[in-house]
Lab assay of single mutants.
Amino acid sequence: MVIEDPKTNKLIEVEKLPDGTYKVTIYDKKTGEKKTITMSKKDLEKLLKAL
């Protein structure tokens, strides 16, 4: 799943891993910076609600 946040000009890509956690990659379209973090479903839901 890919989500675009027009306010921050970032793309957020979410991928479910076999162990039940989620790999979240955040791309900054302005700088080209890429950050990848792994989080639980509960933390991911908090992140998505904040957008």
Rank of each mutant, 00 (worst) to 15 (best):
1 M>E: 14
1 M>L: 08
1 M>D: 15
1 M>S: 11
2 V>A: 03
2 V>Y: 00
2 V>L: 04
3 I>Q: 04
3 I>M: 01
4 E>H: 03
4 E>P: 01
4 E>Q: 02
4 E>N: 03
4 E>F: 09
5 D>N: 00
5 D>W: 03
5 D>F: 10
5 D>T: 01
6 P>M: 12
6 P>L: 12
6 P>K: 06
6 P>Q: 06
7 K>T: 14
8 T>F: 04
8 T>L: 04
8 T>A: 05
8 T>M: 03
9 N>A: 08
9 N>R: 02
9 N>C: 13
9 N>Y: 05
9 N>M: 11
10 K>Q: 13
10 K>H: 07
10 K>C: 06
10 K>R: 14
11 L>A: 05
11 L>Q: 10
12 I>C: 01
12 I>Q: 01
12 I>H: 03
12 I>R: 01
13 E>A: 08
13 E>R: 11
13 E>F: 14
13 E>M: 13
14 V>K: 01
14 V>H: 02
15 E>D: 13
16 K>C: 14
16 K>M: 15
17 L>R: 05
17 L>T: 05
18 P>Y: 12
18 P>A: 10
19 D>R: 03
19 D>N: 10
19 D>L: 12
19 D>M: 13
19 D>V: 09
19 D>G: 06
20 G>Q: 14
20 G>W: 09
20 G>A: 09
20 G>S: 11
21 T>S: 09
21 T>W: 12
22 Y>M: 03
22 Y>S: 03
22 Y>T: 01
22 Y>Q: 00
23 K>W: 09
23 K>N: 03
23 K>T: 04
23 K>E: 03
25 T>R: 14
25 T>H: 05
25 T>K: 06
25 T>L: 11
25 T>I: 04
25 T>W: 11
26 I>P: 00
26 I>C: 11
26 I>R: 03
27 Y>K: 02
27 Y>W: 13
27 Y>P: 01
27 Y>E: 01
28 D>R: 02
28 D>Q: 02
28 D>N: 04
28 D>C: 06
28 D>Y: 04
28 D>L: 02
29 K>W: 04
29 K>C: 09
29 K>V: 04
29 K>N: 06
30 K>A: 06
30 K>G: 13
30 K>H: 09
30 K>S: 10
31 T>P: 09
31 T>W: 06
31 T>R: 04
31 T>C: 04
31 T>F: 08
31 T>Y: 06
31 T>I: 06
31 T>K: 09
32 G>K: 11
32 G>E: 09
32 G>M: 05
32 G>I: 03
32 G>V: 03
33 E>N: 07
33 E>Q: 06
33 E>Y: 11
34 K>M: 11
34 K>W: 14
34 K>A: 10
34 K>F: 11
35 K>I: 13
35 K>R: 09
35 K>S: 11
35 K>C: 05
35 K>D: 13
36 T>V: 14
36 T>E: 05
36 T>Y: 10
36 T>G: 08
36 T>H: 10
37 I>Y: 15
37 I>E: 06
37 I>N: 10
37 I>M: 15
37 I>D: 04
38 T>R: 05
38 T>A: 05
38 T>C: 06
38 T>I: 06
39 M>Q: 01
39 M>R: 00
39 M>K: 01
40 S>V: 07
40 S>H: 06
40 S>M: 05
40 S>F: 10
40 S>D: 06
41 K>M: 14
41 K>T: 14
42 K>W: 15
42 K>R: 12
42 K>V: 12
42 K>I: 11
42 K>N: 11
42 K>S: 12
42 K>M: 12
43 D>A: 07
43 D>V: 09
43 D>S: 05
43 D>W: 09
43 D>T: 05
43 D>G: 08
43 D>E: 10
44 L>T: 04
44 L>Q: 00
45 E>D: 09
45 E>P: 00
45 E>F: 14
45 E>M: 13
45 E>G: 05
45 E>W: 14
45 E>S: 10
46 K>C: 14
46 K>M: 14
46 K>Y: 15
46 K>T: 13
47 L>Y: 08
48 L>V: 03
48 L>Y: 04
48 L>F: 09
48 L>E: 02
48 L>K: 01
49 K>A: 11
50 A>Q: 04
50 A>L: 13
50 A>C: 14
50 A>E: 10
51 L>N: 03
51 L>R: 02
51 L>P: 03
51 L>G: 04
